[in-house]
């Protein structure tokens, strides 16, 4: 009975963060199937450590565990952490997809275009791990610098500079997306 109520409490508290955990895992390992396994393992780890958990920020906590699980998973499966897509090929792809397509202007129009979605997604996925994770946590999950610092275990100042460098890279990758000019 005790185990059951602990589990209920855990699920109530952490189920709302399942999307965030899955999204992060998917961007980090770049594979939907692995992402599911990683999230399941992360939740199990979190559950086992749940008793010791005293922090009030459950989202940052589960994302920390998910991220760590990603890293150990990728090491275990000999997936390289820093193989980024060949930059040329991403740029080439961006070029190819843009030529002949209407040059869209407003963010709303871009949002409406599936190919642009794919491009931006691919651009983020092509970032090296350290830039990718900071980008996902900030731009997709909307975490504060303090929370990001907590997840990545780095000072807030480093969060800011890393994010700045990540954005610089993204701008270079997406330089041909007219709407970004």
């Amino acid at each position: 009975m005790f185990g059951n109520s602990k589990r209920k409490q855990f699920e109530t508290q952490f189920r709302p963060h399942l999307d965030a955990a899955y999204n992060l895992a998917q961007y980090l390992c770049r594979n939907a199937y692995d992402a599911e396994d990683i999230v399941q393992e992360a939740y199990l780890r979190a559950y086992r450590a749940f008793g010791e958990y005293a922090d009030e920020n459950s989202r940052a906590w589960i994302l920390t565990i998910t991220r760590n699980t990603c890293y150990s998973w990728m090491r275990r499966h000999a997936m390289s952490l820093n193989v980024s897509y060949d930059r040329q090929s991403v740029c080439g792809e961006v070029d190819a997809q843009l030529s002949g397509s209407d040059l869209l202007q407003s963010p709303e129009q871009i949002a409406a275009s599936e190919s642009n979605q794919k491009l931006i997604r691919r651009a983020i996925e092509s970032l090296p791990m350290e830039f990718r994770e900071v980008t996902v946590l900030r731009e997709l999950e909307g975490l504060s610098y303090r929370e990001i610092g907590q997840v990545l275990d780095i000072p807030e100042g480093t969060v800011m500079s890393r994010l700045a460098r990540a954005r610089l890279r993204l701008r270079k990758l997406l330089v041909n997306v007219d709407a970004l000019k």
């Binding site: 589990r7 699920e11 399942l18 899955y22 599911e36 199990l44 949002a111 997604r121 731009e139 709407a179």
Partner: peptide
Amino acid sequence: RLKNVIEAVAIRTSAPPHLAQRVSAGL
């Protein structure tokens, strides 16, 4: 501009519906 575009395209992926069940069963 970059920030607005990324926000607007909403490229966040939601967890597939069966994942919650799977996690639950694992616990």
